[in-house]
Nucleic acid binder design. Structure first.
Lengths: 120, 120
DNA sequence: TTTCTATTTCGATAATTATCGAAATGTGAG
DNA sequence: CTCACATTTCGATAATTATCGAAATAGAAA
């Protein structure tokens, strides 16, 4: 339990995930692993207008569930596994009055191809 | 993994929990244990108008996160721990491409006082 | 600098959601 | 049957959210 999370952040994250396209989008990035995906490829995969996708990407980013890095002209989005773990941790932590059942399964990103940054 | 859950149900549950009052409400019921709480007591605890609370109770019920039983004139609401576990299970299951990290911590309701129904 | 490409921001619109008071419903008591 | 109580449903209103095309921004290449 390195980083704390509060109710407000939990609500923001839950609300961000509680949408057909954003849930698909997040899981797409989770499966994409540490390499992530450029916005254009995501828009194509989800069959969304660029402007709509941008709206959802901003929403997930604001909720702290995904992150953005630039690679030449493309913006690469990656899932934030730590945030995912914190969210589930919060739900489980407050599950049984706060005592016994905390999740001991932590998710680590899958390095699909290039493993450039090992600073996680 | 006795009961399956699909994306649509997950979205409904996440959306139900992604609200200040409903998240507090759900956690209140979780802490209340198997005994549950009558609507009136919940409204008082959360300082909500009866009609507003009823709206949120219906929302959580529709999402399958809480259940309703009648006890004389009062309607008693209880948290559905199994639904909670299914939700977290879904999130974790699809966390690492679906393979390794599933949660092995399951939440059981706390029997605070009367343990009338053992058919869980 | 000019052009090309990727992505975001801006309007404008439609749909959904949250809120509360007042009225209605349903249950038990006298 | 009538009354009292707990909760829900009904309106009406305000706020938020999702959508997409068109225009603007940002970076890279020529």
């Amino acid at each position: 339990m390195t980083v704390k999370i509060n109710a407000e952040q939990v609500i923001e994250a839950l609300g961000a995930l509680a949408h057909e396209h954003r849930l698909s989008l997040f899981r797409l990035l989770v499966q994409a692993g540490a390499e992530g995906m450029p916005a254009g490829a995501i828009a194509e995969a989800l069959a969304l207008a660029n402007s709509s996708l941008s709206f959802h990407l901003a929403h997930l980013t604001r909720a702290g569930l995904i992150q953005q890095t630039r690679k030449s002209r493309s913006l690469i989005y990656t899932a934030d596994y730590a945030a995912m773990n914190r969210l589930v941790g919060y739900l489980m932590e407050n599950c049984c009055g706060g005592a016994t059942c905390t999740p001991n399964a932590a998710c680590e990103p899958i390095a699909t191809k290039t493993l450039e940054r090992n600073d996680a």
